[in-house]
């Protein structure tokens, strides 16, 4: 997973160098960082890392059959899952934030126009969006992992098949994606509408159904609560046979 984080830094560099070589308009550190954090972090790394970690919250214990030990302790089942979810959240959050900070510092150094503090508010807002997204994705993938036999595959299909494709389809169907609500919270998402290069990419995601920031946050929090509740009740709802040797 850390490799994925490092990969993002490398990819940012490649993107930046290619952009310069192909003679694109001069890209400021903020623009480059903004595009990378939007396309790479929000649309790829966030759901991907969430899928890899989230699907394993219960599925790994079932697959390894170590769930036996967890279920025969004097701890309520919800507490066991909550502890595992928190651990997953911290791990995934750290990977994303470290990779994001590394990417930002690389981009900032290459562009040479702005220091760390200049775009600190954007950076912290992006961090907030990613952590909020994680709060929804992680239990969502946890639930998938609890009920499906090939949870990672299902998680990847959901990431690339649903979240990243349906978000492109015009109309109301995109309201059923998590990423749709995260778009609204992204810094400058509305501001860039109609703006040349960056806007060309970002405008793909803009629809007439865009919601205000408080509504988007409320929906995301509700979704997080719903999926977390579902995840916490999984061990009460279903039993695991755990195949023998």
């Amino acid at each position: 997973m850390m490799i994925l984080g490092l990969f993002s830094v490398g990819l940012s560099l490649v993107f930046f160098v290619l952009h310069s070589l192909l003679g694109g308009t001069e890209l400021s550190a903020s623009e480059a960082f903004y595009e990378i954090s939007f396309s790479l972090f929000l649309h790829l790394l966030l759901p991907l890392i969430s899928a890899l970690i989230g699907t394993g919250i219960i599925a790994n214990e079932v697959e390894e059959r170590t769930l036996i030990y967890l279920l025969t302790r004097p701890q309520p089942k919800w507490k066991i899952i909550l502890a595992k979810t928190l651990a997953g959240y911290i791990t995934a959050g750290l990977i994303l934030l470290i990779a994001l900070l590394a990417t930002y510092s690389v981009m900032s150094a290459l562009a040479g126009d702005q220091g760390w503090m200049t775009l600190f508010s954007d950076l912290s807002r992006i961090c907030g969006v990613l952590l909020l997204g994680l709060l929804v994705y992680l239990p969502l993938f946890g639930v998938l992992g609890a009920f499906l036999k090939k949870p990672v595959l299902a998680g990847l299909l959901f990431t690339f098949g649903w979240e990243n494709l349906v978000a492109y389809i015009p109309g109301k169907i995109r309201l059923f994606t998590v990423v749709h609500y995260l778009h609204d919270l992204f810094p400058h998402f509305r501001k860039v509408r109609g703006n040349s290069e960056t806007a060309f990419f970002l405008n793909i995601f803009i629809t007439d159904q865009d919601l205000s920031t408080p509504i988007s946050i409320s929906i995301l929090v509700l979704l997080a609560a719903l999926f977390t509740g579902l995840l916490l009740s999984v061990l009460y709802l279903r039993e695991y046979r755990l195949e023998q040797n």
Binding site: R65, I68, T72, R73, P74, Q75, K77, L242, Q244, N245
Partner: peptide
Amino acid sequence: HRLFHQIGYCPEQ
């Protein structure tokens, strides 16, 4: 789960 203070289980696996 409270009963597990008094239970020890050794799985076959």
